[in-house]
Computed example of a mutant assay.
Amino acid sequence: MKYAVLLRGINVGGKNKVVMSELRDLVRQLGYEQVETYINSGNLFFETEASYQQIHDKISQLFVQHYPFIRSFSLFNKADYEADFADLPAWWDENLARKDVLFYTDQVDKADVQRRILALPLRDEVVHFGQLGVYWGKHEEKEYLKTAYHKHLLKEPFYKLVTIRNGKTFVKLGDYLAD
């Protein structure tokens, strides 16, 4: 089965450096196959027959040993991605100014994230709560600075417990999982 691991806050502004070729080598040493990465922001893919819990435990231990600044991550398989993709609302296919996915990590309380987002003053925005994360769309670029996404997201306590990918990267994740 193909899996994806999404890391948060690495290789940003020279902090929390993770060299993708080294990460791929370490993951291969765990016994995983067809190990790939996409761009330099922590998108990792591999194939294994191990269980979700076995993978989670091994990856967690790898981060403790080699990258202690990685305290949480998002782990899902091809079937999980395809189910979320199939359940996306119609607005996801529209030509929006911005689309982002706030992927839940293993440390997040999904119900709390959903409750807190619904309490925000959503302006020119739409949200969809999937199993893998929160799908967030912004209609007009000129209104972006007024959105809850821009004005409130960074202040939310869950912000450091999600890892964000834009809509184009979300599609690319599916391409990697499909191969």
Rank of each mutant, 00 (worst) to 15 (best):
A4E: 01
Q61C: 12
V18P: 05
T147F: 01
N16T: 06
N40L: 06
G137R: 04
A50H: 15
E47G: 12
S74A: 04
E82M: 05
P121A: 12
I164Q: 03
H128K: 14
V18I: 09
G130W: 08
V18C: 10
T37F: 01
Y67P: 06
I39R: 14
G167Q: 03
N95D: 11
H139V: 03
L173I: 02
L120Q: 12
F73C: 00
N43G: 13
L96I: 09
K110Q: 11
V126G: 09
R98T: 10
D87W: 05
N40P: 05
V134M: 07
Y32E: 05
D124F: 10
L145Y: 13
L132I: 00
V64R: 03
N16E: 07
T169Q: 01
P121G: 08
G9S: 09
D25L: 00
K160S: 11
K99W: 10
K138I: 14
F45P: 07
A119I: 07
V19E: 06
E36R: 13
Y135S: 08
I59E: 00
S72R: 03
S60I: 01
G14C: 07
N166I: 08
A90P: 07
D57R: 04
G133P: 13
N166L: 04
H66W: 08
Y104Q: 02
V134L: 02
G133R: 01
E156M: 15
V18Y: 08
K78H: 06
D112Y: 09
A178G: 00
V101H: 00
A178W: 12
A178T: 06
F103A: 06
Y176D: 01
V162A: 15
Y81L: 05
H152E: 14
L30R: 14
Q107I: 08
G14N: 06
K2E: 13
R98C: 10
K168E: 02
P89E: 04
Y176Q: 15
Q34V: 15
K155Y: 15
H150F: 08
